[in-house]
Design a protein around this nucleic acid. Structure first.
Lengths: 340, 340
DNA sequence: GGAGCGCATTGGAACGTTCCAACAACGAAC
DNA sequence: GTTCGTTGTTGGAACGTTCCAATGCGCTCC
């Protein structure tokens, strides 16, 4: 139950600790016979290098830390996968912590990573204000994914949420909708620009008076609750743009329970293009973000900065892409007094 | 960009490093004035304790490591949440790594945690054989979640997969089905007992000749592929039990694309009761596992073992629960020559 | 007024690595 | 036959903490 150290291996193999260290790091300045002896001794003892000790002396951990706000959103799985692939390719390892969308727990999750002296930090859709990222960025290269930041010490990788939201509204207007509501993402990452995009697109289509946002969040429950409050108040919109797919799925369940048809009674559009949105019995119209690439790019940005002194911050903004599926269609009844 | 150490803080506050250490650990044997001076100095310098150094000298990291086979399955998010809650409550922190269902990457993910000297290891649905767990368990308390193990050095927390599968078959038989197929979970954790349970229940209902298993896995794609191959071969079963909900959702999408109605043309039952299964437009009949509790218990088992010498291994098996929803119903046409 | 006590504070050792300068052994070169 | 270089190997220092035994100091008590 006790871990053997490099010294135990050295004794067992009858060489010095330094030589064991060389072998373990794959040096080629070691004679074949010593190498063999060391490797066999290590195997016999079940030796495993101690990362803490290595981190101390090398002043580098070769680990990138990833804080994911919410593991329940399958959107993040692909981002993480991208990070993992890029980090591994560069000889780094990735470890994750999660704060479950609770700002205070997210801070704790970030602190854990920083105390472990990760060489780079990736924050995936952190909720709340940006202090966590800013503070972290003073000691370690930091990149935020999924949430725009203007901070000069923090990198970011996002899609153009505002533009994506506009595309959704354009799409719905093109289908003939005017009464388009929005269930927002609360304080979630990217929720703000999506709402702003919705509002500005509505205005530019001359639909300012139809702007209607209700509060939601990035979860199924949030989407369901948002839909319920939308249905509770006055006239029912003919279409609704929901801040992300997970919430849209929650909202769809509510519509179904109410016996309303999609898209005939209401068109529904989400955001993220999670695979479940495509697989969902009725395909969900949504906006695609290149998740895997976002993860890869985030890792790339962070790794590039490691060891640099005062690197400039970079902000990558990717283009969103509308994916039209069956959940959006023309409104069932066109209103009287309207051009065809 | 360079991290201040406890010595920097000591200089800044005009005290010794030992005193700074005491303050940082919240000792009460420190005078209020020194405490204040130290805390202020630490804040000024942006001091953050170095976990690697602490781990070295304490010979304990106060971290539990969690390896998740596949982040795409929302099932795991709740397990992790349970782990996180229990670990935090006990003064530990949880960090995660993932192997994305690829055995070799899973081994790497486990190695990363072991090198970091986690005090406990939780493997969530590891795929492949159990060597990873067994090897790890020699140096650190290890528990496997979601996959039964007989190994005497490894704890496990599972639900009774076999029993759950039997309940599914019982349910379908009760509805009047005889031609019940199974799309399995391939080499995924728990796939084997679920298939065994399906087969044994079929036999005990006198339906041995109707046993039909096709290969799938625990992903949407796997479920979809399984369903396609099922539809491709001969007579269509009236019901199908799919190894998990994610795969079931993939299968439902295929059925939908083929224009087949659920449950009229085919009843579909999954496993796991992920929230998306409930929210899915058509509620999915499934088997519930107490995910959050499983995570909590796993953390509990591991934490209890820390510091013990040769603790006995424990295997917790929880009872599954059938959740009947709209995706299962009586077969549309009862066969000729059958009792009503 | 000296002994004894309790309390706040301190320096040194230890944890398991990596890095570096130094060393032994040996053959090549003049 | 001394010098030089190369190759393989080595011990000590350092990394940032915690722990422990020891220290100094002010009080109480007789």
């Amino acid at each position: 139950m006790k871990h053997p150290t490099i010294l135990d291996v050295a004794d067992e193999a009858g060489v010095s600790k330094s030589l064991v260290s060389l072998v373990m790091r794959g040096s080629d300045r070691v004679s074949p016979s010593s190498r063999k002896a060391v490797l066999e001794a290590a195997k016999r003892l079940g030796y495993r290098p101690n990362a803490a000790a290595r981190t101390m002396v090398r002043q580098r951990s070769y680990v990138v830390g990833v804080m994911i706000s919410n593991l329940h959103n399958p959107f993040f799985a692909d981002v993480i996968d991208g990070v993992d692939v890029a980090a591994t390719a560069a000889g780094y390892r990735a470890i994750l912590t999660t704060g479950n969308g609770v700002p205070q727990r997210e801070r704790h999750a970030i602190a854990t990573l920083l105390e472990m002296r990760v060489d780079g930090l990736i924050l995936v859709s952190p909720s709340g204000r940006n202090e966590g990222a800013i503070e972290a960025s003073h000691t370690v290269p930091t990149v935020v994914v999924g949430k725009a930041t203007r901070v000069s010490t923090v990198d970011s990788v996002t899609n153009d949420d505002r533009r994506g939201a506009e595309m959704v509204v354009d799409h719905l207007v093109e289908l003939g909708h005017r009464d388009i509501a929005h269930i927002d993402g609360g304080s979630g990452a990217g929720a703000r620009p999506r709402r702003t995009g919705y509002e500005s697109a509505m205005r530019s289509h001359g639909l300012a008076s139809h702007i209607r946002s209700v509060r939601g969040d990035f979860t199924e429950e949030g989407g369901g609750a948002g839909m319920r409050s939308l249905l509770g108040e006055g006239t029912r919109p003919t279409a609704v743009f929901i801040a992300n797919d997970l919430a849209a799925i929650g909202a769809l369940a509510v519509l179904d329970a109410e016996g309303l048809d999609v898209p005939d009674d209401m068109s529904v559009v989400g955001y993220d293009n999670i695979t479940l949105a495509a697989g969902h019995r009725l395909g969900l119209t949504t906006v695609d973000q290149p998740r895997h690439d976002m993860g890869r790019m985030a890792a790339g940005l962070v790794l590039e900065k490691i060891g640099q002194d005062r690197p400039p911050s970079r902000h990558v903004v990717l283009a969103p892409k509308l994916i039209a599926r069956a959940s959006s269609g023309p409104p069932a009844v066109s209103r009287p007094g309207q051009s065809p």
